[in-house]
Design a protein around this nucleic acid. Structure first.
Lengths: 138, 138
DNA sequence: TACAGTACCATGTTATTCCATAAGTATGCA
DNA sequence: TGCATACTTATGGAATAACATGGTACTGTA
């Protein structure tokens, strides 16, 4: 079951250190205990996935086309790649989120991990509730 | 293909532990003795199915589209994934239901398993009778 | 030397595994 | 057909392992 599912809330310390939910770690190949993340283009959240998914995003780009296309007209995939970083998961199962990512998501002391199958998101709990209340409810 | 059928009532202990009906276990592939469950989006019940069905739901999502679509506009499949957990069935044929799932279904000390073919539901017996009385009965 | 980043260790809590028992069901034999 | 035996199933409790989290020590860098 290589899917990210469920939601978890973990604490974030002053240095931006936070535990990755154990079930998320289980879906990441044990060889490269690391994840790729970038600030969402459309939400106050951090998007995340395992690193192999980066290649999947890259395949959407025709890199030659990019050479002759103004940056304003380039695909979202280009923007995603330019904003993504890979973070390694330490021996205790934690990652350190960059301060600007934390700021983008409005995270203070707690992080909400949302599993979405092949990808996941990291939210500030309050921001997530707020976003879901604005039409996310079914 | 084996199907979930019939209904069973089993006891739930203080920790949320409950036996999965033997006939349900028989319909789950013996390799991964586990089930996926989530709080129903439309009922006071817990929805359940074998894990391969979770992948089926995941395939409904285009995760790349998700990266450029606000969460408020995402389809129900995203919500299901974000609420689903996979629970392994222990050596004694039991699972542990999370407290918030139990609360959602109004379960106290007994759980009603309802077979629905490819999927099943877990209800509090009283809530089920009540729901069936309100026009659900066929 | 001060700082940021990283690795290491320690602890309380929660979840999982193991063992034991009882009840019910099917099986075999006289 | 009646009775005894062996299984499966459901359930309760206790031992064990995993997880999340806070803190400290080490590393390199400005």
């Amino acid at each position: 079951m290589p899917l990210f599912t469920s939601t978890y809330i973990n604490k974030v310390d002053k240095k931006g250190r936070v535990s990755v939910p154990a079930s998320f770690r289980a879906t990441i190949p044990s060889e490269d205990q690391s994840v790729a993340v970038f600030p969402s283009l459309v939400s106050k959240a951090i998007e995340g996935f395992d690193c192999s998914y980066l290649e999947h995003i890259s395949e959407r780009l025709n890199n030659y086309e990019m050479l002759i296309t103004p940056i304003q007209k380039q695909e979202p995939a280009a923007k995603i790649l330019s904003k993504s970083i890979t973070i390694s998961i330490d021996a205790d199962g934690r990652i350190v989120l960059p301060q600007d990512f934390i700021k983008h998501a409005g995270i203070t002391d707690r992080a909400l991990f949302v599993g979405l199958g092949r990808t996941f998101q990291i939210w500030g709990p309050e921001e997530y509730d707020c976003a879901m209340a604005q039409g996310g409810g079914t």
